[in-house]
Structure formats: C-alpha cells, structure tokens
C-alpha cells in the first residue's frame, strides 16, 4: 500500500491527479470500519487531515476537514446540535463533515442541515473546480457525483440563514446511535420554512408540499400544524430495517418535524 500525506491543497490535488483511484482518508471513522469488516484493502491512500485549506471555516464556507468537535462549537445551532448527536467524543474528534458527505449515508447527521439550506458541495481536481448543490452531489444511498481525481473541498452555505433553526434525531440511546429518523427545521421571519429529514429515504428528504403549506402560515394554528405533520409523513419514503420499521419512521417523521417547528416558532 502506498501512502501519501499531503500538507497543502496543491500537494493533495497533485496526489489525486497522479492517483485518481486512490482512497481518500479523512477521519477514518467510516473507512476503517470498512477496512475491518469489508476487507477494504486500498492500493493507494491519500490522508488529507494535514491539509490546512480543508480545515478552514470561514463564515459560509465549511472546509471538508472540519470535525464534529468543531461543528459542535460553531455558530449554527442546528448543525451544532446535529454534531453533538454524532457517535461519541472519540468519533466527534476524528469524524469530518467532508467524510459525512463522502459516505453519503441517508443517516448522515450533518446532511439535513445542508439539505435544508440547499448548500453546495465544492469539489476540486487539479484541472478544475465545481460546485454542486447537495442533491446533485448525493445521487443515491452511499452514492455521490465525486469523480476520480476530485476532492471534496467543503460545503458552501447561502448568505441568508435564519436564527430559528433546530435539529433532532430519534434513536435508542442519546449517544452512539445511527438515526432512526433525523430532522432539521429552518424558519425565516417571513414564514418561509425548510425541512429536511434523514434515514427516511434513499437520500435526505425535503418534504416540499409540507414546506410550501406551512410557509404561508404566519402563525400556524394547531390544525395547520397537524396538517404539516401529516404532509411530512406522507412525503417520506422509509424502509423496514434492523433499526426500525417503515411505519414507525413515517409516523415519527411528522411528529419530529412538527415538534421542531413548534420549538422555533
């Protein structure tokens, strides 16, 4: 196995250009599980945690190498709360937002916040740079539009981010759980509301009909909130698995979205 540990973005991009099929290693919290349990044996590894440009967090740009420990202390309440729910202190000190995007699990806890904001994922290769909206980048469960030779540089958030934002997830413990359902709700002062849910579809789900309906309600009545919850439940497409049933996930999606919305009203 060949290992490259670049110390600058230029060096990292030269490494990915020279070895387009290399395995990119960030915090290793997904990758090393694959090494242990799926017998992943990379021929070339490019370890990127020493690349300072990927550690940057400048306002609306969050570098791919920013860890959950840093996200927890950051200015965005919903993202901080999402980060706080990830794994354990050990996982949060190693795992990165870039790795969460790279893995593209429907349960990725940073993804609902990015999806609710229609954040862009910035990608770079030695030859080019491109920005894909989150749903252009994540193309399916654990599938992304990342091309050989490309690195995820970070996520770019839009200018307008409301203060009223919340995230919560349901699991069997408060720590160390992959979400059964997760949800992020954002509410702007003019009523505009965005909702994104994890673990209830092949990728993060935006329940558009529910968003449209509740965005016109400046002071939603309890009947309106019921309708909102009903629409959210109708729009998700969960499955049965070892963690939960589709029926429970559908029900819980509406309950959770409504509860978070009430928190930020």
């Amino acid at each position: 196995m060949e290992t490259l540990l670049p110390r600058h973005l230029d060096e990292a991009l030269a490494a990915t250009a020279a070895h387009p099929e290399a395995t990119i290693l960030a915090g290793g919290t997904d990758l090393m599980v694959a090494v242990a349990y799926q017998a992943l044996r990379p021929a070339v590894v490019i370890g990127i945690r020493r690349v300072p440009e990927l550690q940057e967090w400048d306002g609306r740009f969050i570098g791919a190498g920013v860890t959950y420990s840093r996200l927890e202390r950051g200015p965005f309440a919903a993202l901080a709360q999402a980060a706080r729910t990830v794994g354990s202190p050990q996982i949060r000190s190693a795992g990165t937002i870039g790795g969460n995007l790279g893995t593209a699990s429907p349960a990725g806890d940073s993804l609902p916040f990015l999806a609710a904001l229609d954040a862009e994922v910035l990608l770079r290769s030695q030859a080019a740079e491109r920005a894909l909206r989150w749903d252009e980048f994540i193309t399916g469960p654990k599938r992304t539009a990342l091309q050989p030779g490309e690195l995820i540089v970070g996520a770019r958030l839009p200018e307008a981010i409301p203060d009223r934002q919340a995230f919560a997830k349901i699991g069997t413990r408060t720590a160390m759980v992959i979400a059964i359902v997760s949800c992020c709700v954002l509410r702007w002062d003019d009523g505009t509301t965005r909702v994104a849910l994890g673990s209830v579809g092949p990728t993060t789900v935006r329940p558009r009909a529910a968003e449209t309906m509740i965005s016109t309600e400046r002071r939603p009545s309890s009947a309106a909130l019921d309708e909102f919850a009903r629409l959210v439940s109708a729009e998700v497409s969960p499955i049965n698995d070892h963690r939960s049933t589709a029926a429970y996930r559908r029900h819980a999606s509406g309950v959770l979205a409504r509860r978070l919305l009430e928190r930020v009203l």
Binding site: M1, T3, L25, G28, M32, V35, V45, G47, I91, A94
Partner: peptide
C-alpha cells in the same frame, strides 16, 4: 479510538 486510526496516517 485507535481502531479507527489508520496507522500510516
């Protein structure tokens, strides 16, 4: 967790 750190990294 040292089980999640690739030694070469």
């Amino acid at each position: 967790c040292s089980c999640l750190v690739m030694a070469v990294d």
